[in-house]
């Protein structure tokens, strides 16, 4: 049996499950929105045992950790302010330890630990170690330094260091718009010192590349966003009327090798890598998202990624 940890809303999970059903593979799907009753996670000198929602996880042969993490704090304990914060931290430590236990004893694809430790700067350093090109990048709290960086590059962009902003209060919601160009006016509006700002040189691109990978399999898609004002900086600023052209790409072998080396180095056995193919003909690494969406890569390129994921698990089951 396979354990799937995912969100109720995740379409990719649904599509993989359809293939699991087709191949007759048993699975247990636990959704991150629900409270999951922990019967026990018990350790002794001779054994480790885990039982969730009355299911003995000894029978699990492999895990696909698609999204988020399990919730073991009852809903009634939410909204207790600092007490809830404390309980969540305790839960976080539990969830990570369970992940480590399962990882050490069976095939485990995806990771909550890596998702929360999605440190873009570390990834940039690792990519550079694998001889991938990276954009000139800087993090600063100082206006003068920011102006210097701005002046030494034609154009610069800014983005979040780890997660995109997503703050919800009772009155308002604040949402990140993704990557954007930094203008003189934006810089003018800043004080001399501020919270860390992450800026990068803007790289003129011929096209963007999104690579979804699962273990050693890579599925690359080219995204042509350059002609379209709305998506020039970041294709995630979707244009719904006329979608950007998305086509399959077969990456040059040396780039694929470097990327594979990178995935080993950052210990992410699945994820989505963003690259740019620049107008000066370089492949430039931008970032990796440990739990990126692949449904649109699969559909646009006719890759049947869901089917190959299900097949991976079929091999483990047999």
């Amino acid at each position: 049996m396979i354990l799937l940890i995912s969100s109720k809303y995740d379409v990719s999970t649904n599509n993989v499950i359809k293939w699991l059903n087709y191949y007759g593979i048993n699975f247990l799907r636990l959704n991150t929105e629900d409270f999951n009753s922990l019967n026990h996670f018990s350790l002794s000198n001779t054994s480790s045992k885990l039982k969730v929602n009355n299911v003995d996880l000894d029978s699990i042969t492999s895990v696909w950790h698609r999204r988020g993490r399990l919730r073991h704090v009852p809903n009634s304990l939410n909204g207790l302010g600092k007490v809830t914060d404390y309980l969540k931290k305790e839960e976080d430590s539990l969830v990570k330890s369970i992940e480590t236990y399962l990882k050490n004893t069976r095939k485990y694809i995806g990771s909550y630990t890596s998702e929360v430790e999605n440190y873009k700067l570390e990834h940039l350093m690792m990519a550079r170690e694998c001889n991938l090109n990276i954009p000139n990048s800087m993090i600063t709290t100082n206006k003068k330094e920011l102006i210097d960086f701005y002046n030494t590059h034609d154009q610069i962009i800014s983005k979040d260091l780890r997660y995109s902003i997503n703050i919800k209060t009772e009155k308002i919601c604040i949402n990140s718009i993704g990557t954007f160009k930094v203008t003189n006016d934006l810089i003018k509006g800043l004080e001399d010192q501020f919270a860390p700002i992450y800026v990068q040189e803007y790289i003129e691109k011929e096209f963007e590349i999104r690579v979804f990978y699962f273990e050693n399999k890579m599925f690359a898609m080219g995204i042509f966003s350059q002609q379209d004002e709305q998506t020039q900086v970041d294709y995630r600023n979707y244009n719904n009327q006329v979608p950007n052209r998305c086509v399959p790409i077969s990456l040059p072998t040396d780039i694929e090798k470097k990327l594979l080396e990178f995935t080993k180095k950052v210990k992410l056995n699945t994820g989505s890598i963003d690259l740019i193919y620049s107008t000066d003909e370089r492949y430039v690494f931008l970032e990796v998202n440990p739990m990126g969406q692949f449904d649109w890569v699969s559909k646009n390129c006719n890759y049947y990624i869901e089917k190959s994921i299900a097949k991976e698990f079929l091999e483990v089951c047999n």
Partner: peptide, 14 residues
């Protein structure tokens, strides 16, 4: 680096 689109069709139903 731009291959033709695969013409495969498959479907997870009977």
């Amino acid at each position: 680096i731009f291959p033709k689109l695969s013409m495969d069709w498959s479907d997870s139903t009977i």
